[in-house]
Design a protein around this nucleic acid. Sequence first.
DNA 1: CAGACAAATGGTAGCGCTACCATGATTGGG
DNA 2: CCCAATCATGGTAGCGCTACCATTTGTCTG
Lengths: 351, 351
Amino acid sequence: MCRGRGDKALTRPRSRRGGGRPTIADVARKAGVGAITVSRALREPGRVSEDLRRQILAAVDELGYVPDPNARALASARAEVFGVLVPSLTNNVFAEVVRGIYDSLSDSPFRIQIGNTHYSGLEEERLLQVFGSQRPAALIVAGIDQTPSARRLLENAGCPVVQVMETGPDPVDMMVGFSHFDGGRTAAEHLLEAGYRKIGFIGARMDPRSQRRLAGYRAAMEAAGLFDPRLITTTPVPSSVSLGRELFRDALAKMPTLDGVFCNNDDIALGVLFECHRASIDVPKQIGIAGFNDLDMMQVSFPSITSVRTHRYEIGTRAVAMALAAIAGNRPEQRIVDLGFELMPRESTAR
Amino acid sequence: MCRGRGDKALTRPRSRRGGGRPTIADVARKAGVGAITVSRALREPGRVSEDLRRQILAAVDELGYVPDPNARALASARAEVFGVLVPSLTNNVFAEVVRGIYDSLSDSPFRIQIGNTHYSGLEEERLLQVFGSQRPAALIVAGIDQTPSARRLLENAGCPVVQVMETGPDPVDMMVGFSHFDGGRTAAEHLLEAGYRKIGFIGARMDPRSQRRLAGYRAAMEAAGLFDPRLITTTPVPSSVSLGRELFRDALAKMPTLDGVFCNNDDIALGVLFECHRASIDVPKQIGIAGFNDLDMMQVSFPSITSVRTHRYEIGTRAVAMALAAIAGNRPEQRIVDLGFELMPRESTAR
DNA sequence: CAGACAAATGGTAGCGCTACCATGATTGGG
DNA sequence: CCCAATCATGGTAGCGCTACCATTTGTCTG
């Protein structure tokens, strides 16, 4: 059983499958050290003497050595990957969060893997399964309404988990966001204070966050004794500017005496504004408009549109900061971070 | 040398680093077959008898086995990853391309890794280096103006490469896009045909594609004998609606007799439209406006805005289709795919 | 100055999977 | 009915890296 092991034909290294890319062994040979020392010099420079470190880095440079992340992940049972789950890639809101994540991670060794759940709980479960198989360093997921099964996957992920976009009572691990209910209520209260009475709610793609904004609007309207279910116009269709215009026409047809609208997001609000222009409805005199998220264009439009500013980029950067801290071993004491929002009153509600 | 190998203390498997996740060996044991047969059953079901395949799939199901992509990548020297390089994550244009890529790859085994180059050639090189170390199955990169060093990395990537967004004469491998020069020229010609004469160009973030649109505009203006460098207003600052407004004011200040503008993109065009509203400039009578990309809102605005429709989502899906074909071994005969564009004439240029 | 201890380095054995080759069973042509 | 060709399956040896332990060297205490 033992003889024959030294046989040349059997021992010959397989022709480099990797296409001749230098490996850690090549670097070690060139620097005249053991492979493990190269590994250490790259990962924990403090544990290698300065002389060797210099030699090793020189060899790395000369050979153009780049560690193979797959081999690394396999050997250490931990991939340097952040898994990120968002419901949409084109919605500016999530794009901003993702941008924050990328920017915060750009000079770390961590790679990012984005999953698009398409607002589907099942798809979220599937992606969590796929992500889990890679043993990611951290997971960042949008929303707090995971299915029970998805929640279990998150709890057993064996890595820091940050739920973003919203705050809620029961984090899987950590949370960064704000209260959509309060945001919706604040917008509605602002319209009420500005003197509007028949204030409609217009929303598309009624995901859980939209539902909570609607609930906040409703709370404000009920508190003022002005709530009427016919004020609400929604659709499950994805949001867009043109959809905003259509929904507003529906809303007006249903309730011609409407004098204000809280739009579930800024795209809708812009569509409403355009329809007002087209139908010669004076904004803010005849109709007050408030949006949500405060995209750049809200301050430029004519008239400028009142909106609730949310801190999307910061949600991304903060989530990464918390995950990174947890990875480093000092989990933040504050597990739920509420970044709040800011009402931006503008011409569209300045009656 | 040979004796001692069987020694219990040495042979004992290391405590499962992976935290007890089932491995292919567990599945093999449960199904009563060799590990390699499990591997085959999962990757090339045709090569395993139906009996065994059924047994194996049952075992996989029961154990909840999910293959470790890192081990896979290491053993096969090929990761099931598409590397995607875009200059921006928030720009709707690239978001749409990326969405097309995701949708086309969603039920394939391939994962996606996005890199954000921030419009920087150096950053692109760095990311290519990082991506290369993973031996991706394919690379999709935006643009055709790679640095020489980035181009070399792409050529040596050892996988299909698709350059997207533009067409050009000299693909690294494959290409999907359209001619930005023609797009710019078409928009300018349309404005000229509509009777506008002093047609300005307004652009932000003058990346190579913007430059080519500008060149197309210039060609049209020169052909009409109407070109004047003072008609051009640009800035390297990232594009936004509010920036569009500001640049338009600059343009007007510089050349008060302006009677039309071709905007490098729709955000800018929207900003121009808003400024016209604010300054009571009649569109399309006093000023004609044309945008680029044809975002949804262009058809809804008041007045609706003429734009050049580009097929961004299709660029993503087509790029994936080509890469997949190349991976499967049948490289498409047509290596350069021009998806064209479509002028959408609207109220903003209907004098 | 012996012994204990820390710091620096290296060897070995896997991580979980697949490429490569070997083997046995089955088929078909002469 | 034999031998070659084909098919189905398995064994072995890595892929490139790091965890774990062993070894060496230098440093400090009493």
